[in-house]
C-alpha cells in the first residue's frame, strides 16, 4: 500500500523550482515527429520527382532512375514549356495560357469578392424582409452539381453574345463563387458585435458609409481568405475554361492538358513536368506568402454560423 501511494503522487525533488523540464526525445515526441515526417515525404516526393525530371535531358530520363538527381542540369525544358511548345496550331508555349489565366482570374476574383462581401454584409447586418429565404436559395446553389448547369449556361452566354469570350468566363466564375463567398462573408460579419453597427447608425452612417468606413477595415483577414480561395479555384479551373472559351483564349490548365496529352511525336517528360510546375507556381506562391493570414481568416470566419 505504501508503495502505491508514493508512485501515485511522485513528489517533486527537493531542488525543484521554476518550469518543469521537458525531454526533447520523449516517446510522445518521437511518435508525433515520425508521423509528420512520413506524411511530409509522402506529399513532397511527387514534387521532388517532377522537379528533378524537369531539369534532366531526355536521354538521361530514359536511362536513369526517376529519383536520381540530374547529372547534367538543363533549363532547356522550362524554356521550351514556357515559350515554344506547340498546342494545336499555336506554338508559343504556355505563356499564352498564363496570360489568359491572368486575364480570367484577376477580374473574376475582384468582381466575385466585391459582390459577395456586400451580400454578406447586407445579410448579416441589415436583416431585410426575406433575407433568410434569399440566403437559403443562395446556399442551395452551392449544392447543385456544376454538370447540371453547363448546357443552360452555354445557351445563356450565347444569347448574351458572350460565348467564347473571356468576359463570359469571368461572369461564370463570378456567379459560381457567390454562394461560398457570401457564406464566408456573412459568417464573418455576423461575428462583428451588433452594437458597433448600432453605434454607427446612431452616428448617422448609412448603408455604404458603414460598409466602407466600419466594416471593410475590420474585414481584412476574411478578404485575404477570399482572395486565396478564389484565386486558386479559378486558376485551377479546367472545366469552365475548356467549355466556355475558344482555343485562343484557353486558360493555362487547358493548355497544360493539351501539351501533356498530345499523342503525336515523342513524349517529352521533362517539358511536361516543367509545364506542370509552371502552372502551379501562382497558387503555390499565394499560399506561401499568405499562409498565416489564411489560417487566421478561416478561423475567424468559422466562429459563428
Amino acid at each position: 500500500m505504501a508503495d502505491v501511494t508514493t508512485t501515485m503522487q511522485r513528489p517533486s525533488p527537493a531542488h525543484a523550482s521554476g518550469p518543469k523540464p521537458r525531454r526533447a526525445f520523449s516517446r510522445r515526441n518521437i511518435m508525433i515527429y515520425s508521423i509528420l515526417f512520413v506524411l511530409a515525404v509522402y506529399y513532397l516526393l511527387p514534387f521532388y520527382v517532377m522537379l528533378m525530371t524537369s531539369l534532366k535531358g531526355l536521354t538521361e530520363i530514359r536511362t536513369g532512375n526517376i529519383f536520381a538527381p540530374p547529372v547534367e542540369i538543363t533549363f532547356e525544358p522550362w524554356a521550351k514549356a514556357w515559350s515554344t511548345v506547340c498546342t494545336g496550331l499555336n506554338c508559343d508555349g504556355l505563356s499564352r495560357g498564363f496570360w489568359n489565366s491572368v486575364k480570367i482570374t484577376v477580374p473574376s476574383v475582384f468582381f466575385s469578392i466585391t459582390v459577395a462581401s456586400v451580400n454578406g454584409y447586407a445579410l448579416s447586418m441589415w436583416r431585410f424582409k426575406g433575407a433568410n429565404v434569399f440566403f437559403t436559395i443562395l446556399i442551395i446553389g452551392a449544392f447543385i452539381p456544376y454538370q447540371v448547369m453547363i448546357y443552360p449556361i452555354v445557351v445563356l452566354l450565347r444569347e448574351m453574345g458572350l460565348y467564347g469570350n473571356l468576359g463570359g468566363l469571368v461572369l461564370v466564375h463570378t456567379i459560381f463563387g457567390m454562394p461560398i463567398l457570401t457564406l464566408l462573408f456573412r459568417n464573418y460579419f455576423s461575428s462583428v458585435p451588433e452594437e458597433l453597427f448600432k453605434a454607427a447608425r446612431v452616428d448617422g452612417a448609412r448603408f455604404w458609409t458603414i460598409y466602407f468606413k466600419i466594416m471593410l477595415p475590420m474585414a481584412l483577414p476574411i478578404f485575404v481568405v477570399a482572395v486565396i480561395l478564389q484565386t486558386t479555384a479559378i486558376w485551377n479551373d479546367f472545366l469552365f475554361g475548356v467549355i466556355y472559351t475558344r482555343p485562343e483564349n484557353y486558360p493555362m490548365t487547358v493548355q497544360l492538358n493539351n501539351i501533356v496529352n498530345s499523342v503525336t511525336g515523342v513524349k517529352e517528360y521533362n517539358v511536361n513536368m516543367a509545364a506542370t510546375l509552371l502552372s502551379g507556381v501562382v497558387p503555390l506562391t499565394i499560399y506561401f506568402l499568405s499562409g498565416k493570414l489564411f489560417v487566421r481568416g478561416i478561423a475567424a470566419g468559422a466562429v459563428k454560423g
Binding site: 458585435p193 452594437e195 448600432k198 453605434a199 447608425r201 446612431v202 448617422g204 452612417a205
Partner: peptide, 15 residues
C-alpha cells in the same frame, strides 16, 4: 432614423 432623433447612445460593449 436614429441619427435624426437628437439622441446619443452609450453601449455596454463600448462599441
Amino acid at each position: 432614423e436614429p441619427s435624426d432623433r437628437g439622441i446619443g447612445m452609450v453601449f455596454q460593449s463600448y462599441a
